[in-house]
């Protein structure tokens, strides 16, 4: 557009052009706001799936308790002969590997002194070792409720279908029920450590642009 080029001879008065401009701008804004209403909704994006058959409801399956240690079982092998010493005390000769860390409980709160191969409830009802959870729930009634609902304790298998429950002793040592610390799995790599093993030039410029 050099000076010898003819642009639009006197363009229409500025006010008229401005009006055109404003009108166009308004149109754009209108279109935008119309779509804005639609923008608020999430896209309707799903596949048309065929209806699937229902899978059976949850079915609780009790997993067997972990095996007891052979070293001590059955209790009656050693304890049958001796009369029971019912005084709560620190064990020195035997069972000193068992650290008791379960509230103020002592052996005979749970183990029966009369029937050595049984546990007993507070009302002296005998309970076999396999059903030890019955003892736990005497105090931990709330946990029993959570456990029944599937919220306390580990579940495996199916959220719908066979749901595998475990009894208390599967995870807790009744003598010291707190979770024992374990070694964690390796930490994730930092972004700086994720490098293209084969990239020719991809080194990191730390701290800065």
């Amino acid at each position: 557009m050099s000076s010898d080029q003819t642009g639009p001879e006197g363009p229409s008065p500025p006010s008229y052009q401005l009006a055109t401009w404003v009108l166009l701008g308004t149109a754009v804004v209108l279109v935008v706001s119309l779509f804005g209403v639609r923008l608020e909704q999430r896209p309707e994006t799903t596949r048309d799936y065929p209806v699937r058959a229902q899978v059976p409801d949850a079915l609780a399956v009790l997993m067997p308790a972990p095996p007891m240690s052979d070293e001590y079982m059955p209790c009656s092998d050693c304890h049958a002969e001796e009369p029971a010493n019912r005084t709560p005390r620190e064990l020195e000769d035997d069972h000193d590997d068992k650290k008791l860390a379960h509230g103020d409980l002592w052996c005979l709160h749970c183990h029966s002194a009369d029937q050595r191969d049984y546990l007993h409830l507070a009302d002296d009802t005998l309970v076999p070792f396999e059903n030890s959870w019955q003892l736990c729930t005497q105090c931990h009634a709330k946990k029993l409720r959570d456990w029944r609902a599937g919220v306390h304790g580990k579940r495996t298998g199916h959220w719908r279908g066979e749901k595998e429950y475990r009894t208390c002793v599967a995870c807790h040592d009744p003598h010291s029920p707190a979770f024992k610390p374990i070694a964690p799995k390796p930490r994730p790599r930092r972004p700086e450590e994720i490098a293209g093993g084969s990239s020719a030039i991809g080194e990191h410029a730390h701290d800065g642009l």
Partner: peptide
């Protein structure tokens, strides 16, 4: 298929829950 996610089954303390 009705099964639990892998993380639910892996958790050693049963902290992970899943359902409908």
């Amino acid at each position: 298929e009705g099964r639990y996610p892998a993380c639910v089954e892996a958790c050693p303390v049963g902290a992970r829950k899943f359902g409908n």
